[in-house]
Amino acid sequence: MSAESPSLHGLPPEPGVPKPDPILVVHGLRRSFGGLHAVNVRHLEIQRGTITSLIGPNGAGKTTLFNVLSGFDKEQEGEWHLNGGALVGIPCHRLARMGMVRTFQLTKSLARLTVLENAMVAAQHPKGESLRGALLGGWRDVEAKNEVRAREMLRRFTLDHMADEYAGSLSGGQRKLLEMARALMVEPEILMLDEPTAGVNPALTQSLLHHIKRLRDEGMTVVFIEHDMDVVQEISDWVVCMNEGQVIAEGPSRVVARNPAVVDAYLGAHHGEVTP
């Protein structure tokens, strides 16, 4: 179990508790599908430089919250701020460039691009990626720099030997690693991972967690959705639990795991009565 992050030490474990240095602040955020409030978050702050796990039963609204925050879905009400700047109405590709990068529950690899190209395409290259630049040239310097960085990133995720293979030929676990490497090539400030360990074997899960911790130690903020409580206990600095669209508990993992509201959410409110 990781030690409690010093920056979060002593905070009361209550939903919506203010953090000393929040990078992301969500306020009054609502997204409904018909009559169902998929997301209904009154207030939530994410502390800079920490690993925050987002847990909750299926259908709790975790992925929808991710989608709204990253601009892939539209909120109906509410606001959220990155480093104090309001993000409402900004399209998803601009949110990514502003430093908020997300991955997907079902890995989306760019199958018929090579592994290296997958990493390169994520790098920012305003000149070469514009039509003008593509026609007139003059983008090779930046391209060379990006390639060096992409190869370093692949080495870090032990994918460098696969650089020239099609991403579609990677194993499921390698795709997860590539997706993370790709997200990092965007140079995010906050990385939002949607179930990075789903369907990944235990050894690779450990490797992924090691990478996530290392990112945190380098100063990155990581928010991730996770179902495996062992994983959550192992690496979270802070845990946020959602149910029916709302944040029902937050705090250090030990505290949240014992919270009766969380236990109820996972096992059903009347679990005590059915126990024989």
Binding site: F72, H93, A96, R102, K108, S109, L110, R112, A122, E129
Partner: peptide, 11 residues
């Protein structure tokens, strides 16, 4: 290959 993935990379 994947529109949403490309979007998520800031394009």
């Amino acid at each position: 290959e994947e529109e949403d993935a490309t979007r998520s990379l800031g394009k």
